[in-house]
Structures are given as C-alpha cells and as structure tokens.
Amino acid sequence: MISLRPSGFDELGLRRALSDRVLPLLVAAMTFLAALALGGWFGIASLSQHWRTGAGSALTVQVPDAQASAAGLPGTRLAAVLSLLTGTPGVASAKALAQDELAALLRPWLGSAGGHLSVPIPAVIAVRLNEETLDVTPLARRLASAAPGTLVEDHAIWIRRLALLTRSLQACAGLALIVVAAVAAAVVAVATRAGLIRRREAIEIVHGLGATDSYIAGRFAARATWLATMGGVGGSVIALPLLLVLANLAAPFSGRPVEPGDMRDALETLPPGLWFALPCLPAIAAAIGFVTAHGTVRRWLRRLP
C-alpha cells in the first residue's frame, strides 16, 4: 500500500492520467529525430572544417617545362615563379613538390610508374595563403608572363561554394531541431491537457483543500518531466548506433582511416561535439516536459476561483 510512502504519493492519480506509454514513445521519436539532426549538424561542421584547413587557403601552381630558363630572367622558370610568389603579399609560403611527392600524388591515377614517365610532368608548387580572400587573377597574370603556360588553380572558389552549402545544410539541421522541439512541446501540452480533463474532479478536490496552483502544476510537471526524460534517453540510445554507422561512412571524407569492425575506432569517428550534445538531448526533453506541463496546467487552473 502506498499509504505510508509519501514519496510515491499520487493524490491526483497522475500515474494513470499521464500514462508511461504514449508520451515517452513520442518523445523518444522526437529525440531520435533531434539526434539525427544534431549528427548532421556536427558531421557537416567537421567535414567543412577539415576541408577548409586542408585546402582553404591554398593554391596549386603548375609550371610546365620547369627546368627551362625563364624569359628575361636569370634561372629556371620554376625559380622565377617561386621568387615571384614569395614576393607577393598575402602568400605565406610557396614550396615546390619534390619528385617523390609528385609521384605520390599521381600514383592513384598512374600507378607506381608515375615517377618514371617519359611524358613531361609540370612542376607543382603548393602555395599557402595568409588570407582566404586574396584575389588570384592578377597574380596568375604575372606568373604567366614570367613563365608562359603556368596554371594557377584556386581552391578558394570551391571552398566558398562548399562553405555556402554547409552553412545551408547546418541551417536546415538547426531548423529541424527547432521544429522537433516545438512538436515535442505540443505533444507534452496535448498529453497534459488530456490528463487535466481526466483528473478534473481530483484537481478540483485538491484545489478546494487549499492546494496552490504551483503545487498542482508541479505535480503534473514532475510526472511529465520524468516521462520526457525516459523518452529522451530512449531516443538518444536508439540513435547512437545509427550515428556511428553514418560517422563511419563519412570517415573517409574527413581523412580518417577506414577500419570497419573495430568498435573503439567507430566511437572515435563521432565528432567530439556530438558526444557532448547527445547527452544533452534527454535534459532538453526533460526541460521541455517541465516547462510545457507547468505552463499548460497553470493556464488551465486559472479557470478555478
């Protein structure tokens, strides 16, 4: 009997009025969706971060016929281009790739024979910039006049397009999170209203015995918070394996090694931010449950004198 255990004292009969089936299930579904949206958010963020630091402030300059002497300048064409580049404001460094580095770059396309081809291969200079916004068109023109045929490949345009895409995707993920939170609040509000109607008589009796609005609202909010927390934990736990699979699929794009089957590696592929955000989901679900139930009950109670 509950008679001597006030901690389980349920004077409003909320254990049955707010049942532990539907509400946790719906909140779990919402949390699951929120976890996927969060996973998308962090996944996109880490991919774009990786690409940006990898290639964001970089140019590739190809100098064909590198060892020929430059027109009107002492030294080879390669040396002329290099000295022009290092003298340009905004350029942090310019480094010609050595033969074996070039071979490594070409190996995926040409196989291990890449280093000994009779086809002339241009020298490749990797340039790092101080600022992403450097306008490369005049630079390219000066380089081409020093060593005709020199090509400047600007990664920044692609990085900008990529950044726009990732920002849009992140905005979508954020929007999805907001909508999911709003739907969760609506679900809690509907469940609370149903509970209020089911327990109207008990509420009137307890109100008549001198219970304050905050007492009654607190009882409902405690129940709703508990149910929402259960749903939040359930939804996050269910989402975790799916997020791990997705993170593993995304790993090659972030430059991480793909070693399927190893659980520890799989866990490490999740963006670190997600490890912080995922446990927050049940807490947010709980907060939504508490605030919504409290507000709904208080508004309803205002009809009583």
Binding site: M1, I2, S3, L4, F9, D10, E11, G13, R16, E201, A202, I205, V206, G208
Partner: peptide
C-alpha cells in the same frame, strides 16, 4: 468528494 484512487488514510 473523496479521492477514489487513494486509501482512506491518504
């Protein structure tokens, strides 16, 4: 106006 889901004591 007793609460039916509670015991007499409660």
């Amino acid at each position: 106006r007793l609460l039916q889901h509670l015991s007499a004591f409660d």
